[in-house]
Amino acid sequence: MRGWLNLNGTSKLLPFVGMIISVLAQSGSMVVIKFAMKDGMNKYVMVVYSMGLSSILLLPLALFINRSQRPPLTFSALWSFFLLALIGSSAQIMTYGGIELSSPTLASAMLNLIPAFTFVLALIFRMERIYWRHFSSQAKAIGTIVSMAGAFVVILYKGPPILKIHSSISYNTLQFSPNLNWILGGFLCAGDSLLSSMWYIYQVSVTKKYPAVIVIVFFQVVFITIQTGVYALIVVRDPSAWELKLDMGLIVILYQAVAAIGIRYFLQTWSVQRAGPLFCAMFKPIGIIFTVFLGSIFLGDDFYLGSLIGAVIIVVGFYAVQWGKASEEKVEKGIENLETQSNVVPLLQNKV
């Protein structure tokens, strides 16, 4: 237990629990989104209403929690929140489009790409280092490539269903052929994973400059509401699509606003602040387990062989990256200890 409570001087138990809850909320979100779209609700309108309601719910928290301890709210901070929201709103639109064209299971499998993308971006922004002659660094590089290869397996190879549920209803919006829908949906979900990785990386910088998590989440949600609202007004031409009814669509909006946006955004932002982007990214492979289970129960979704093979490849690649990172941290910690000892010993000898 001490290993969890005191890792690198900070508590990792609470971020661990927080990320498990966050991934479960996101998996449930994918299932209820598909359910609402099957019921005829417009995906862009759903984003706007969910974000708007979440903004209202977060407002009193943002106004009163730790009010006296916050840094001043500057234009620079607001601009950072706006950019975070722009990344988040783009990811939301890609997620909803990808789920509509494919399935929640495929969307969840593609989330496993987030650790690989996060690692590549961390290298680009010098948050991670790689030493090509070291086996641990080679494991990180190879693991990243393997994860990306697994994503292409998920997208390009659907395969036969290996978990077939009684429902035979098709949930795809057949604008194209079913296979082309699957491929396009996969690429949209991959785009969502890339944007989510960018969101994690940029979040580190933002939380260092402005550590009040609830304020960051509130302004993100407000700006996403505005951004997606403008986009929805452009692409949704049917006024009746904006009408709210006492049906499943309203329940989905409530779930999205409270769990998938409010709670999930807060837990992810707080966990990134406490444990870093790669620690949080490592929980994404768990999402496919939750999504397959929930999708089978509530949607009657089939689970395809291609999704299983690709997800396994992605997870193997991901844990190769994590093994390499853990090995490098041990080596760096050993070097730091040796340097500390070399600095301390001469002082002791002089005193003797």
Rank of each mutant, 00 (worst) to 15 (best):
G3V: 14
G3L: 12
T10F: 06
S22E: 05
V31K: 04
A36L: 07
Y44N: 13
M51H: 07
G52R: 05
G52H: 06
S55I: 03
L57F: 10
F64S: 09
F64I: 09
I65C: 07
N66C: 03
R67V: 13
P71D: 12
S80K: 12
F82T: 12
A85N: 00
Q92D: 09
I99L: 07
L101N: 03
L106K: 07
A107L: 03
M110I: 08
F117N: 08
L121M: 10
Q138W: 07
G143A: 04
T144C: 11
V146T: 12
S147D: 11
V154W: 05
K158L: 02
K164R: 15
S167V: 04
T173K: 15
F176T: 06
P178M: 00
L180A: 07
L180D: 07
I183A: 06
C189W: 07
C189R: 05
A190K: 09
L194T: 05
L195W: 11
Q203F: 03
V204T: 13
T207D: 07
K209R: 14
K209S: 13
Y210Q: 08
Y210F: 14
A212S: 12
V213E: 13
F218V: 03
V222Y: 07
P239I: 00
P239E: 00
W242V: 01
L244C: 11
I251R: 01
L254I: 15
I261W: 07
I261T: 15
I261D: 05
F266H: 09
R274Y: 10
P277H: 13
C280I: 03
A281C: 01
I288T: 14
F293C: 09
F303W: 12
F303H: 08
L308S: 11
I309E: 04
I314T: 08
K330W: 02
K330L: 13
G334A: 15
I335N: 10
E336H: 06
L338H: 07
N350T: 10
K351E: 14
